[in-house]
Computed example of a mutant assay.
Amino acid sequence: MTLRIIPERYLPHVQGALRIVTALLFLQHGTAKLFGVPHVDMFNNMKLLSLLGVGGVIELVGGLLLLVGLFTRPVAFLLSGEMAVAYFGFHAFQNVWPLLNKGELAALYCFVFLFFSVAGPGRFAIERR
């Protein structure tokens, strides 16, 4: 007998909630880079056609699409790839440990987005209507 705190029938609801919360948190990265909200000093004077600028556009558009649950699988796959590039291109070379190279968030986003690219959006998604 398996002990289940939340019945399995609620899995799509929890999956949808995870998608929405993840998208809202991820959107902050795009808005910080493109609009300065919330303000992050590192993104001052950032050019739109720079690596960080293009990343900001991907984060903003991808985050919005993920939030509403539209094109979830391909968008999540693209975002997973972006986060893999962020981790291996900016964090991994600094130190082998994600806690020390400040790449924990990029690694976690990478695998959460990979999950959505396989599992789909769950509930509360436009594409389910």
Rank of each mutant, 00 (worst) to 15 (best):
T31G: 05
T31D: 03
T31S: 10
T31Q: 04
A32E: 11
A32R: 08
A32W: 04
A32K: 07
A32L: 09
K33S: 07
K33H: 06
L34G: 05
L34K: 00
L34E: 02
F35P: 00
F35N: 00
G36I: 11
G36D: 11
G36C: 12
V37A: 13
P38I: 10
P38R: 14
P38F: 13
H39Y: 15
H39Q: 14
H39T: 11
H39I: 01
H39L: 05
V40F: 11
V40I: 15
V40T: 14
D41W: 11
D41S: 14
D41H: 12
M42F: 07
M42E: 10
M42S: 08
M42I: 03
F43Y: 13
F43I: 10
F43Q: 01
F43N: 07
F43V: 12
F43T: 07
N44Q: 15
N44L: 14
N45G: 14
N45D: 15
M46K: 05
M46G: 07
M46S: 11
M46D: 00
M46E: 13
K47C: 01
K47D: 15
L48A: 12
L48G: 10
L48Q: 09
L49H: 10
L49S: 04
L49Q: 03
S50P: 02
S50G: 10
S50Y: 07
S50E: 05
L51C: 05
L52G: 09
L52E: 13
L52F: 12
L52M: 12
G53F: 06
G53M: 08
V54D: 01
V54R: 04
G55L: 09
G56D: 02
G56F: 11
G56L: 04
V57C: 08
V57R: 00
I58E: 08
I58Y: 02
E59W: 03
E59L: 00
L60N: 02
L60A: 03
L60D: 01
L60K: 01
L60G: 04
